[in-house]
Write a protein that binds this DNA or RNA. Structure first.
Lengths: 224, 224
DNA sequence: AAAATGGTTAAGAAATTGTTAAGATTTTGT
DNA sequence: ACAAAATCTTAACAATTTCTTAACCATTTT
């Protein structure tokens, strides 16, 4: 089994502080990436997906506040010498997840990093998910339909898991497409339709209940 | 129209601090609940589901640290006079989502509350909109009329949501047309009239009350 | 009364979804 | 590294749902 390391992007222009943070994180077995200016950070953010960003505010090129506004879907912890309440509030309200003032305590920084990574993981529940005749076995990537074992492909599993985890809710087609392909735009909506169709067939083999409902123009959901 | 308020449980034994927090939150339109001991908090937590917990550490009955361990699936912000790094780290690692030291800045507290509620919403159900006999279910994209399920098309849903969200207000025909078609000008006003007509019919099937009122030459609004 | 706006209905156009099968790609086993 | 197997994507077409158009009538304004 491969445990992938968490990728953390450190955006900080002061080289000595940068190095301290980098070493601290490396010791904890995080996968660190470095940006020394706001513009460099943006370039890196376009190329790769990170689990967390540590962000200094006073940066050459592009201010940290601007980066917060541009980033989406990645947790940001601001690390700043600015202690004014307004600075904190601004950052937090515009998208940062936490704000730590320098000088910071390394243990506290590590703990707050854990908190963020933990909340990212909320979706990845390891427990099995049961619903009526269905039981999704997380360890084996299989599905029980009325206690009959049905093997799912990786994609089918991901789709069904997303639907079951958010059960009453409609999941948009785009959200489901994101699950299927990390690469952008290369995946057809039609492909998703085929996966859904296959899932429905596999379920239908063992029960007459319908589980996956289409919401026209929006996406799919699990039927009540 | 009722948009459900966020429920916040305040666990704090010092009555004056408790009152300050409660008033602060009430002003921001949060739904506050009060516990003055650890044991009282547990009782409340068994009865109801909260969106967020504000937790003091030094409590009679049961220490805050114990509550953190018992709580599951609710974000906790610790509010404590303990400033030692070890206390912070312990709380954060054992399940708290944030840790604020007293005395705290009210704006910062509110901002950090927003952060937590924001991250809750990533997964969770959006707010439903209720008005008299109508209830728009955002998770299913359907409408309940006197508790009868009526399925709406994407466009009908968008129109009704816009009207309900801005209830006393008249929404101009152009604004509603924008909702229907992103492309400009390719959509007839007549089309909007048909959608409104269909909406009215679907509502009329289950109630005699009229909901959508036409404002001559301007647009539409929800009747008071 | 004439002109403009709103309401309803039905039919055809347009868009979305469902299914199947074939070809492309990735993974697996040797 | 290669062949076989499994999986994913694409394409084609059918089925379904939704949207727009058009025709016609009602209501309001001038």
């Amino acid at each position: 089994m491969v445990i992938t390391l968490k990728k953390i992007l450190i955006i900080e222009d002061n080289e000595s502080i940068h190095n301290v943070i980098e070493e601290l994180l490396k010791k904890e077995n995080y996968d660190t990436y470095n940006a020394y200016s706001g513009t460099e950070a943006l370039l890196l953010l376009e190329k790769e997906k990170y689990d967390l960003i540590l962000l200094d505010l006073m940066l050459p090129g592009l201010k940290g506040e601007e980066i917060i506004k541009k980033v989406n879907n990645v947790s940001i912890i601001v690390l700043s010498a600015k202690i004014s309440s307004d600075d904190k509030v601004n950052c937090l309200l515009s998208g940062a997840s936490d704000y730590i003032t320098k000088p910071f305590d390394s243990k506290e920084l590590l703990a707050r990093i854990e908190v963020q990574l933990r909340s990212n993981n909320k979706n990845n529940v390891l427990d099995n998910i049961k619903y009526k005749d269905l039981e999704l076995l997380s360890d084996k990537h299989t599905l029980l339909v009325c206690n009959n074992k049905v093997s799912l492909t990786k994609t089918e599993y991901a789709i069904l898991k997303q639907l079951l985890l958010n059960k009453p809710q409609v999941i948009s087609k785009n959200k489901l497409l994101d699950l299927i392909s990390i690469d952008t735009e290369d995946c057809d909506e039609n492909s998703l339709r085929v996966h859904i169709s296959n899932l429905r067939r596999k379920i239908k083999d063992y029960t007459d209940n319908e589980y996956i409902e289409s919401i026209w123009g929006i996406g799919f959901k699990i039927k009540d």
